[in-house]
Design a protein around this nucleic acid. Sequence first.
DNA 1: GAATCTTCCTGGGCGC
DNA 2: TGCGCCCAGGAAGATT
Length: 287
Amino acid sequence: MARRHAPGPDHLAAVLTGAQVRAVDRRGKYLWLVVRPDPGAEELWAHERAGADDPASGEVALIVHLGMSGQMLVQAADMPEPTHTHGVFPLVGEGGVESGAQLRFVDQRTFGGFALSGLTGAQAGHPHGIPVTIGHIAPDPLEPAFDLEAVVARMRRSASGIKRVLLNQNVISGIGNIYADESLWRARLHGERPASTLTAPAVRRLLEHAHEVLVESLAQGGTSFDALYVNVNGQSGYFSRSLDAYGQEGRPCRRCGRLIRREQFMNRSSYSCPGCQSRPRALSHHA
DNA sequence: GAATCTTCCTGGGCGC
DNA sequence: TGCGCCCAGGAAGATT
């Protein structure tokens, strides 16, 4: 779990021992705990503060990425550890009172992980700043910092397929393969349409649909295909029941009745409706 | 500098 | 029953 933390797992554990959790924040698919390490551990994490604002605040970010199968679970210490538990953090309450609870990081495919980083650039919605090492990640559509018109302009400058651009976390974050396909279905766009050939209103509509998809999915607890996808209390989400395109190959499109198709895309799959989401003309004859 | 490809990783599901 | 293969996917780093 400390693979992306260069100084290694022992260092991570040393800095976090006795650290105080001050806040929890997120951007796109990254989440982080704002922690204040024990003053006695100050030398240990001095290098994490490089590039950070106001190092005197004593705060550092514990960045977490769940990859595709990672879970952050808060469970009673006497509950058996799930298979693939890679990290256990005993939680202590105010005044050092034992809480009997543990934060556990569980990950089957080990694409997820933890890393420490300094914080910089406090802004609306992120009063403690953003971790330095994820400075390249663009705001997601649910953040105050998200600038719709700037993203529309940025996307339209790319000659790449619109889905590829939608998945580029440096342009807009928080959208993965599932929500990209759902957003494109709602916007009636094929993912291989070059972004630069779309009008500004078309891209704007796509982003508005993406925003809707994220809000609706969150309201249902996310998209759970199996027990891998759960919240901090181990509960599944129900958005998979609302999917119109992703994973629906061979089923009729809810809008037009044509059968949803599956196509190869970047060594994975894209799902779309052949009726509502026509392939770009220049590519049609290859289909 | 941007676009694209490769790599990391494991368990479930499938065909034989 | 068991083996081998494919598939899922985010993003860093390498390559074009």
